Computed example of a mutant assay.
Amino acid sequence: MSRDLTRPRGRVARSLGWLARRVAGAVFVLWATATLIFFAIRLVPGDPAEAILGGPGSQASPEALAGVRAEYGLDQPLLLQYLAQLGRLASLDLGTSYSLKTDVAGLLAVQLPGTLLLAVLSLALAWLIAIGTAWWATLGGRVAAAVSSGLEVVASAVPHFWLASMLIVVFSSTLGWLPPVSTGTPAGLVLPVVTLALPVAGFLGQVTRDSLFDAAAAPFALSARARGESRGGLFGRHLLRHAALPGLALSGWAFGSLLSGAVVVESVFARPGLGRTLLGAVTLRDIPLVTGVALVSALSYVVVVALGDLAERAVDPRGRTA
């Protein structure tokens, strides 16, 4: 009886410990991101006070520049500016955009859903492509394995800007099937999603295919074949579950790669989102907006990594007691 009561308590303790580690890791990642952005943006040539007043072309007077520096604390020592920013971020105050003169949190709330939709759809498509190529490589013999391996290497090495340009030339300019820019419709999502998904699918496909071959040689697969399991059943019920574990561990990295790739893809396809917002903010030295975008992206990455860990624990029961 006492042993039965101890087991749930042990599971709860492990779950709370896992959650505490995740929260501590998230806080550290956000602090490191805010620190890196704070010092990196100040290495960019130019005066933040000029950016607040409209850029170098505004021809602001020295008095106006001095007033802005005093208002935003830019005349303080760098360490005091850094501590002040950490204090604002700790109170969930992302500040006001220098260039757009609007609340950063409200602006990010508008731009974030589009980028998250693009990244989630791209990750889902990347997994479908990876599983499809792994299925073909496993069931198609040596030729299929060699061809799929070559395609995965090529896909993982293709730059986003080149792939986006080729897709626009083929499917928009030549065939006229899809719009070359974002139109706010499902058709306008196809090319951006494919552009982001293919390189990630190449990485996931390589990892999944190698794991499939290892799993196919394992004793449990040999036992399933001896029981008369079909090739499709062996793949779906046995091999894929084991082969997906390394890919699930990489899903957090893949999502981070998709967020970084969104900077290029959203610019090429004129799609609103965090990527285009970040590009414009860096160009204009908009420190609060750059910091806000970086922190939201880092937080999204941390959440996806945690979800990937949960999925891995669900697929592999050994991870629940590790």
Rank of each mutant, 00 (worst) to 15 (best):
T6L: 06
T6Y: 01
R9Q: 11
R14M: 08
R14S: 05
R14E: 08
R21N: 08
R22C: 06
A24N: 05
L30S: 03
L36H: 10
V44H: 10
P48T: 09
A51G: 15
I52W: 13
L53I: 05
S61R: 08
A66D: 09
V68F: 14
Q76L: 15
P77S: 10
L83E: 00
L86P: 03
R88D: 11
S91D: 05
D93H: 15
L94S: 10
D103V: 14
V104S: 13
L108F: 02
L108G: 14
L118P: 04
L128N: 12
L128K: 11
A130M: 14
A134P: 00
W136H: 06
T138I: 09
G140A: 05
R142V: 02
R142P: 04
V147G: 01
E152G: 02
H160M: 04
L167Q: 00
V170D: 11
S173W: 02
P180C: 07
S182D: 14
S182K: 12
T185Q: 08
L189K: 03
V194P: 12
T195G: 09
A197R: 10
L212Y: 04
S223C: 06
S223M: 10
R225H: 02
R231L: 07
L234M: 12
L240Y: 13
R241C: 00
A243E: 12
F255I: 03
S257N: 15
V264E: 04
V265S: 04
R271E: 00
T283S: 14
T291V: 00
G292E: 13
V296W: 11
L310W: 05
E312M: 09
G319V: 02
G319S: 00
R320G: 15
A322I: 04
